[in-house]
């Protein structure tokens, strides 16, 4: 369960102060697929950064499994991210010069997983996303869809509780985007992990169990098909 309580984030100071998030409150049940929907600049990414422990808003709480991650020390937050969170970005952010294997291996290395276990889990993850034949290829030589599959493999390899996907299909053509969506929802159902998708795409949002609409840093409405 993710509880977001009164999260407020201001950019800049004094006259330049800009309220990017204004008293955000909601609860996401475990295993749900959630869309954070809104226009560009509405504050979706800022909210995602706060929920995933990348950013520290000045007010509010983000309680995950009973722990307010905004109160954790930086070392504990890093550890929380490496063990509990998977990230997927619009621009993939794969390491172009590294092989597919080494890209996916990175989160496991950060979590001090042994070489043997790493090998097994990386190959499994590559298999799940369907690019196990590209294990030794450099990421730069992959197509856009393959890069995003690689990013998904990297996000799931450490079996996170929550996967955050910021505009995961934004840089893909509609066919490739559709297969990536399918992959994400399939994983969400299979693994029981929570999936949080940041998007401005209504069609993608419609496929989620829960939709949080953001407008100018405030919650506009929440539509939930789960209790």
């Amino acid at each position: 369960m993710i509880e977001v309580k009164g999260v407020t984030k201001t950019y800049g100071k004094k006259q330049n102060a800009f309220l990017a998030l204004d008293d955000i409150n909601f609860v996401i049940p475990d295993g749900a697929s959630v869309a954070i929907v809104g226009k560009s600049g509405s504050g979706k990414s800022t909210l995602m950064h706060a929920m995933s422990g990348l950013d520290r808003p000045e007010k509010g709480q983000v309680v995950i499994d009973g722990i307010d991650i905004l109160k954790l020390k930086s070392k504990a937050v890093d550890r929380f991210r490496s063990e509990k969170i998977g990230f997927i970005f619009q621009s993939f952010f794969v390491q172009a010069n590294e092989s597919s294997f080494d890209n996916v291996s990175l989160p496991l290395e950060i979590s001090n997983i042994s070489v043997k276990a790493r090998k097994k889990r990386v190959l499994e993850a590559l298999q799940v996303v369907g690019i196990d034949d590209k294990e030794k290829q450099k990421a730069r030589n992959l197509s856009g869809g393959q890069k995003q599959r690689l990013a998904i493999a990297r996000a799931i390899v450490n079996r996170p509780k929550i996967i955050f996907a910021d505009e995961p299909t934004g840089n893909l053509d509609s066919t490739t985007g559709a297969t990536i969506e399918k992959l994400l929802f399939g994983l969400n159902k299979q693994s029981g992990s929570t999936l949080v998708i940041v998007t401005h795409d209504e069609d993608l949002a419609a496929k989620c169990d829960m939709r949080i609409y953001i407008k100018d840093g405030k919650i506009d409405k929440i539509v939930s098909e789960v209790e």
Binding site: K75, D78, R79, S82, E83, F93, Q95, P107, I110, S111
Partner: peptide
């Protein structure tokens, strides 16, 4: 810069 940002987002310590 991107690569460093990614590694840190994935939980890599600044020290590392």
């Amino acid at each position: 810069t991107r690569e460093i940002g990614l590694m840190k987002a994935l939980g890599m310590r600044g020290r590392h």
